[in-house]
Structure formats: C-alpha cells, structure tokens
C-alpha cells in the first residue's frame, strides 16, 4: 500500500468519525437499524447518520439478501456515490447467500459485484454487532485500509464482467423505465 500524505491521514481520520449512511434498506437486515439508530444503541454517538441520497452518503449498507432487481439499483447507486465510499454487508446472505443459497433470484456473494469493506455475520445481526462493525470500519478507515472504492476503480472491468454475467444488463430498459 502507498504511503498516505499527512492530509490524507487527517482526512481519513475525519472520515472515520463522520459516516453518513445511505438511507436504503435493501433487505430484512434493515429491521435492526432503527434500534441501532435510536435510544437504546444510538449510533449517532459515533457520527453515523442517515442521509437521503447517494450523493451525500459515505457508506452503503447492504442489509441482507440482494435479488437481481435490487442489485441493479445497488450498483447504480454505488456508482453515484462520491469517493471515498464504503460498503458494509449485513448478514450471511451477503457473504454466501445464507439461507437463500439456492434461490433463483438472489445472488450468493456480494463482493463479486461490488467491493465490500466489512461483513457482519449472523441472521440477522444484532445491533451490538452492527455497532461493532461500524467501529471496525472506522478503525479500518483511520488506518487507510478501507480501500474498496479504489479496488472498484482498479478492477472495474472485472466487476463489470461479473455484473453482466449475473444480471444480463445493469441499466435495465423495461416498461417502467422508458
């Protein structure tokens, strides 16, 4: 890994303490997010706050299984996010398909399509686990190791090819989208 300049180190340490997450519940793991956000666990303590649109967000939470229809939107949304951006995969579904390993519509591993910085195991992960994952991500960002966005740029061709393999086309044209 390249040496970071001082400015990059400062920026990384700031980034680690202000994570704006995209307000997008892609799956059932989102059910444990409200408790994490609210009084009991209060993740705003760590500077994690929900944001409305991908342009403003730093982290994308893939909260569980992704079917192909959602994956298209996830990829599109991920590409709309500003660098540096991080992805957290929730639950076993994002790791290896989890309980839906043989489903005809859900994908089996997320990092095949977009780079993932942190996975959280479990179905569904408890709020404590989510907070732990956030802390781990923060640590990674501080050290400059959360480089999923760089990997996506470097291996863009590979990711695109994987996406096309599973999805056919990412930017879908159908009667809804004309």
């Amino acid at each position: 890994m390249k040496e970071r300049t001082m400015w990059e180190q400062i920026a990384d340490s700031l980034r680690s303490r202000s994570l704006w997450m995209l307000h997008y519940c892609t799956g059932c793991g989102a059910m444990e997010l409200p408790p994490t956000m609210t009084a009991r666990f209060d993740m705003e303590r760590f500077g994690v706050a929900p944001m409305a649109t991908p342009r403003q967000a730093d982290i994308m939470l893939i909260t569980g299984y992704l079917n192909t229809k959602t994956l298209r939107r996830v990829i599109y949304t991920y590409e709309q996010m500003a660098d540096p951006k991080y992805v957290i995969g929730f639950g076993s579904c994002t790791i290896n398909g989890g309980i839906y390993f043989d489903s005809y519509s859900t994908i089996n591993r997320l990092d095949y399509y977009i780079p993932v910085d942190v996975y959280i195991a479990g179905c569904m992960p408890r709020p404590e686990a989510i907070l732990e994952a956030f802390n781990y991500l923060m640590e990674k960002i501080r050290k400059g190791e959360a480089d999923g966005w760089k990997r996506y740029k470097e291996n863009y061709e590979w990711y695109k090819q994987n996406q096309i393999r599973s999805l056919g086309e990412v930017y879908v044209h159908d009667e809804f989208h004309e």
Binding site: T26, C28, N67, K69, T70, Y100, S103, Y104, S105
Partner: peptide, 13 residues
C-alpha cells in the same frame, strides 16, 4: 407500484 425488490422465491424454496 413496482414491487419485487425483495423477491426471494420463498414459495419455491
């Protein structure tokens, strides 16, 4: 409505 983002094929599984 445009549903189907959470379709996992439960009934099949």
């Amino acid at each position: 409505p445009l549903p189907g983002f959470l379709h996992r094929g439960f009934e099949k599984l």
